[in-house]
């Protein structure tokens, strides 16, 4: 599904990613771990199309097609979704209106009719229940005044609504207490199918107890320095990152 080839990227003159190679197949869950500053968040930003980062070499290929020339919204229409480490607050736009707009724009881009209001409401009810979200959050301004945990839950709610092919969860566990973590992880697990894939970016092993990865990769100084199965995460937890450098 996703193929990253020799990806180099950075901001201005500063290189951050220095040759990433990664292949993610449908149905798989990959975890990317690494110390602060290793390039984890840059990788997710580049895949989802954040123009603050410049790709200097290599390619990102989604379903046999390079996406580097596509805008973030075009990538979203092709099924890329990123759960933000720090979701943005947008005062004045309710969560409901925001997600309705996002869904209908995606449908429009894919040549589909707008989702009828009745179906939209049903979908919202269903997915917010999955994340055990308090309904009142849906009518409030997007993320405004939400706690860290509420914001993350809202991210996964949006993921549930948009049903992406490739979901990238950037530090989704940060700011979550254990109960919220379980709900969020449960939500992600329920959304997993044979057709979609998940990349979990995390600093700690904790989340991986709940979202169990097929592969674990360790990122250090812009490169994947080690890959393995889920046991690699436990090893990292025990030994820290130093032994891998």
């Amino acid at each position: 599904m996703l193929k990253i080839e020799n990806l180099h990227a950075g901001v201005e003159d500063k290189g951050i990613l220095k040759g990433i190679n990664l292949e993610v197949k449908a149905g798989e869950v990959h975890a990317i771990m690494g110390p602060n500053g290793s390039g984890k968040s840059t990788l997710s930003s580049v895949i989802s199309g954040n123009e603050a980062f410049e790709v200097t070499d290599g390619d990102v290929i989604l379903e046999d097609e390079s996406v580097l020339e596509l805008s973030p919204d075009e990538r979203a229409h092709k099924g890329v979704f990123m759960s933000f480490q720090y979701p943005i607050e947008i005062p004045g736009v309710s969560t409901t209106n925001f997600i309705k707009t996002a869904i209908n724009e995606k449908r429009k881009a894919n040549g589909e009719e707008e989702l009828p209001a009745k179906d939209m409401l049903k979908l919202i009810r269903e997915k917010s229940a999955l994340l055990e979200m308090d309904r009142k959050f849906l009518s409030r301004s997007l993320n405004e005044g939400f706690s860290g945990g509420e914001k993350k839950r809202n991210e996964i709610f949006q993921m549930a609504m948009l049903e992406p092919k490739l979901a990238i969860l950037d530090e989704t566990d940060s700011g979550l207490d254990i109960d919220a973590l379980k709900i969020v992880a449960n939500g992600v697990n329920k959304l997993r199918t044979k057709e979609n894939a998940v990349i979990v970016i995390t600093h700690y092993q904790r989340l991986l107890d709940y979202i169990v990865p097929d592969f674990v990769h360790v990122l250090h100084d812009g490169k994947i320095v080690k890959s393995g199965g889920k046991e690699l995460a436990l090893e990292l937890e025990a030994k820290g990152y130093d032994w891998i450098k």
């Binding site: 989802s48 199309g49 954040n50 123009e51 603050a52 805008s71 973030p72 919204d73 990538r75 979203a76 229409h77 890329v80 979704f81 990123m82 933000f84 979701p87 943005i88 947008i90 005062p91 004045g92 736009v93 925001f98 997600i99 707009t101 996002a102 869904i103 724009e105 995606k106 881009a109 301004s141 949006q158 948009l162």
Partner: peptide, 26 residues
Amino acid sequence: AMFYMQSRGIPEKEAKALLLYAFGNE
């Protein structure tokens, strides 16, 4: 905020309008 909205599939023009609308909404 623009990137956040675009990453959800809302095209630039609409994202911009939505943000401006939200700005004035108060």
